[in-house]
Design a protein around this nucleic acid. Sequence first.
DNA 1: AACTTAATGTTATCACCGTTAACATGTGTC
DNA 2: GACACATGTTAACGGTGATAACATTAAGTT
Lengths: 202, 202
Amino acid sequence: MNQSITPYHHGDLHNCAIIAAAELIESIGSYDITIAQVAKRVGVSAPALYRHFAHKDALLTAVRELTHLGIMDYITRAQADVEQGTLAHLDALGSAYLRYATDKKAFFGLMWEDHGDTESRRAEARAKRTGFQVLHEAIDLYLKRHKPESAGDSLKTATLMWSTAHGIATLQHNRMLDTFDEDADADTLLRTATRAILQAKD
Amino acid sequence: MNQSITPYHHGDLHNCAIIAAAELIESIGSYDITIAQVAKRVGVSAPALYRHFAHKDALLTAVRELTHLGIMDYITRAQADVEQGTLAHLDALGSAYLRYATDKKAFFGLMWEDHGDTESRRAEARAKRTGFQVLHEAIDLYLKRHKPESAGDSLKTATLMWSTAHGIATLQHNRMLDTFDEDADADTLLRTATRAILQAKD
DNA sequence: AACTTAATGTTATCACCGTTAACATGTGTC
DNA sequence: GACACATGTTAACGGTGATAACATTAAGTT
């Protein structure tokens, strides 16, 4: 009696490790975590994780997938309350992006972190592209409705708007926005940019 | 005779270490370097560097200062061939920023990297702000000449343009621009954005 | 039910990292 | 020349990602 309560085999170490890593990252507000920390949190020895992940970055890559799901959740939810193809729709998308960047600071940083694993880059690129396509379709719809003569530029317009949103988000993430203009507000900036980009070439 | 060619005291280890670190970063194309690597390159033991830098991040911060000088050099040089306060001036500034991001990939990454040293953040913020002010003045001049009614918005306009340039630069840095639009060209995108932002509210 | 095999844990260990301590060697000053 | 101080050295520590060798459990075959 009084034997080990937890069995030798964990059961679902793979997924639990990913979740534990994500929780850890969120709780300390930084993606600078340790294999040992994750292992301890799951209640397992550190090398055990190497049965499920080739190296630390593979684990972080798995967490990155979660972050993509997370931001897609933000985006999807933002679309729910809004009529498709309207300016409000575009504002909602941008606002969701900015909100994710501030709400989930560590995750946002992790998403765009440089890492070497070339194999996982493709999967990530695909995930980011699907997020991008939501924006692209919204812009395409908007242009066809309100500026049919510019509808052919929807891809370039979407790329530009994503770039702008990303720039504002990362500058805010690095606490640089208010260094430049202490009254700067990310949402207002993005709304201004959105209108400028859409109005261009009139 | 045949004594040690290098004296016991290095003479200017502080600056040499910074330069060595910078060279190392540039040569391997990543700011993920090691104190030992830097020490070896200077021909000194690793702990010797701790006489000149409190911790590794202090050394990296010193390199960051160099990167700020470097990008200011790009910007200053870009201004030389161009008439102040023109659209060409603004294009040149943006182009210089993008060029630095691609030419000095590792340095650009280092510049905006998250790091904990709160003390050095202020100095960096100041350096970034002076870079920003060049853009701000150029935009202010442009607006006063070509759109005097919007001259009051020059700060917000500059913040927006920097954000856009930064977004394009970082997306390109993460090889994401052509993931979205394989024909995307950073310079063209930024020029489009510049014109859109300046034309707005007409 | 027993044996085999593969999956998945364990502990021991490695090389390397940032960093500190204790000691050595120069340099400048009176 | 003696002393203080700056600046270098080697030795060592705790922590990191990762591997090796071994232990345990689960699953499949007969």
